[in-house]
Nucleic acid binder design. Structure first.
Length: 550
RNA sequence: GCGCCCGUAGCUCAAUAGGAUAGAGCAUUGGACUACGAAUCCAAAGGUUGCAGGUUCGAGUCCUGCCGGGCGCGCCA
């Protein structure tokens, strides 16, 4: 938070001293080395060209002004090329601790979104099989991002788009139908492109139970029934897994619904009027190449089937033009990146600013088992299900691991390591810090503390280096929240948690919180409570629990 | 062939919109429990940031070209 304050202060002073300067981009950063202070800015270096003065001279002038702010700064220095280094007064950090104790679960909130309506669409796996490990990463990412954006003042809706239309669904139905035949003793030949997973048998059994005369029906009708049943069962299974993974959606949006409402037709007609549609070789094409796509795309195939893209155009048209979202965030697997340009092209055709659609591509997940990479394919029925991770690893460790990497980085999920409840598994390191603090408070109660009146605490007792470091770390939380939100980067919080937990564990092993000295104890308990609150708030943004005992 | 992502310590990854002497964890080695939970802590060691140029006060970060890896390039989703 102090970082934001310093930034504002700099902006104000520049205005006073040099007049308003447009598009000024400068940094307020935490230097890597302590000798450069708690924070530093490069603003004088950036201003050099604008003001045609030496950076040192500019820095000196600004520093003089900042020295007046004795409540915030304890020391200010101008160095070498023109950096200004700031040391923050302990008093500031104490005030921040008081704020934490007062705000509790509200601490760290910051209004970046100003109530902007944002839709986060994620997972959206086709209901052709259970969720696997790759979907899990998208689920953890999308849900955590939703929590972070909500925490930072956005009005967030979480949505799952169900692709329940098209050839894949027919194949799904036919797969079930064939398995039903097989189960009834018929000899079958199972085509290469059908769904081979074991779950298809389960659905087939269910179909036979529900429709005893299934196999004597007209085949087309039987497949249709199998399809409907399969979608229903698989979707329930998906919902169930996601719930166990603590991912709760606001909407489950059906693709077929778009067609029932004639949305797709409407949107295609609109494009037709604009002259962006043409017919070639029996198919209907959209001139996406006019809007930055590599080539035009088919939206209605020559067999009159709509492509997935057709539905997606209508879906996104509706998101912006009818449902009124200011920002839409789609979270896709990186293997879909080729699709980005055509969807943005569609938005441009509707005069929707393509920047309003943020597509976040998440790199693949490699499953490591026994030290080897296992390959996965839904069609072949070879994949590790999310369910398996939930059963064997648990939601907390699974989420933490998924959220420990930037989306750009492929993730190796070592299932053996994830299962271990040991130091190699970082989630426990963080949770343990929280549990330890809870345990201290339990002990304190045993020792006769029945209430903690922070208002009466004498914070001067927090005078060790480790205590000041912790106070600084707690203040930093607000900056981390801000960057996690504006960069769509939940992993920033994961790293922050590990750092905070580390500093707490160090402190814990070096100093005793509970002692005969009541005043010292109360101050240290206050610091512990601050850590507990921040740990819990940060964990909550990842959707990971903060246990009292482990 | 074209497009997107990536290349940092033995391994897995950070490095905050270009900042100062590139940091963690794991693994390795050696230490610390009769006091709030040892799922913890302390210490040691580990690097030509894939290669070569360029941009500037300053490059792991930006530009160009190579090398290596992943993923795409359908009237599939």
């Amino acid at each position: 938070m102090i970082r934001r304050k310093i930034r504002e202060l700099i902006e104000n002073k520049i205005n006073e001293l040099f007049g308003s300067i447009s598009d000024l981009i400068f940094e307020v950063e935490k230097p890597k080395r302590e000798i450069y202070g708690d924070y530093a800015t490069n603003v004088a270096l950036v201003l050099k060209n604008r003001l045609n003065k030496s950076p040192l001279e500019i820095a000196q002038k600004l520093a003089q002004e900042f020295e007046k702010e004795t409540k915030i700064f304890s020391k200010i220095e101008v160095v070498k090329p023109g950096f200004i280094n700031f040391w923050i007064s302990q008093n500031y950090y104490i005030e921040n601790l008081k704020k934490i104790l007062e705000k509790k679960e509200e601490y760290g909130k910051i209004d970046l979104g100003h109530g902007k309506k944002v839709l986060i669409e994620f997972v959206s796996a086709n209901p052709t099989g259970p969720l696997h490990i790759g979907h899990g990463r998208g689920a953890a990412y999308g849900d955590s991002l939703a929590r972070i954006l909500d925490f930072t003042g956005y009005n967030v809706t979480k949505e799952y788009y169900i692709n329940n239309k098209g050839t894949q669904m027919i194949i799904l139905g036919a797969s079930v139908y064939l398995r039903a035949k097989e189960l009834s003793g018929e000899k079958i030949e199972f085509p290469e492109n059908y769904y081979k997973g074991a779950y298809i048998y389960d659905i087939a059994k269910e179909a036979l139970k529900l429709y005893p005369d299934l196999l004597s029906m007209e085949e087309e009708k039987a497949i249709e029934l199998c399809k409907e049943l399969a979608i229903k069962i698989i979707l329930e299974d998906i919902k169930n897994d996601l719930e166990r993974f603590r991912v709760i959606y606001d909407n489950w949006y059906s693709e077929t619904g778009l067609y029932e409402k004639n949305k797709v037709e409407e949107v295609i007609n609109y494009l037709k009027e604009k002259g962006l549609i043409y017919e070639k070789e029996g198919a209907i094409w959209f001139k996406s190449s006019l809007f930055g796509d590599e080539k035009d795309r088919v939206i209605i195939r020559s067999n009159k089937e709509y492509t997935y893209f057709a539905g997606d155009i209508a879906y996104h048209y509706e998101k912006f033009k009818e449902r009124g979202f200011d920002l839409c965030i789609n979270i896709w697997g990186a293997d879909h990146h080729g699709y980005v340009k055509r969807l943005k092209a569609a938005l441009k055709a509707f005069d929707i600013d393509p920047e309003k659609l943020q597509i976040i591509l998440i790199q693949m997940v490699n499953l490591i088992e026994g030290g080897e990479i296992k390959s996965m394919s839904t069609r072949q029925g070879e994949f590790v299900e999310l369910k398996e991770l939930l059963n064997e690893v648990g939601a907390d460790a699974t989420r933490f691991i998924f959220l420990s990497r930037s989306a750009d980085s492929p993730l190796d999920f070592d299932i053996d390591l994830a299962k271990k409840q040991s130091q190699e598994n970082p989630v426990y390191y963080v949770q343990y810090a929280h549990a330890r603090i809870c345990s201290i408070f339990e002990k304190a109660k045993e020792n006769g503390w029945d209430e903690f009146n922070w208002g009466r605490a004498n914070w001067e007792f927090l005078s060790n280096k480790e205590e000041l470091d912790l106070l600084k770390k707690l203040d930093e939380f607000q900056d981390v929240v801000e960057s996690a939100s504006s960069l769509y980067a939940p992993y920033k919080l994961t790293y922050y948690l590990l750092e905070l937990a580390k500093e707490f564990h160090e402190y814990y092993s070096k100093y005793r919180v509970l002692s005969e000295d009541k005043e010292l104890t109360l101050a240290r308990l206050g610091l512990c409570m601050g850590c507990k609150i921040v740990l819990k708030n940060a964990l909550n943004l990842l959707g990971v629990s903060a246990p009292k005992k482990m």
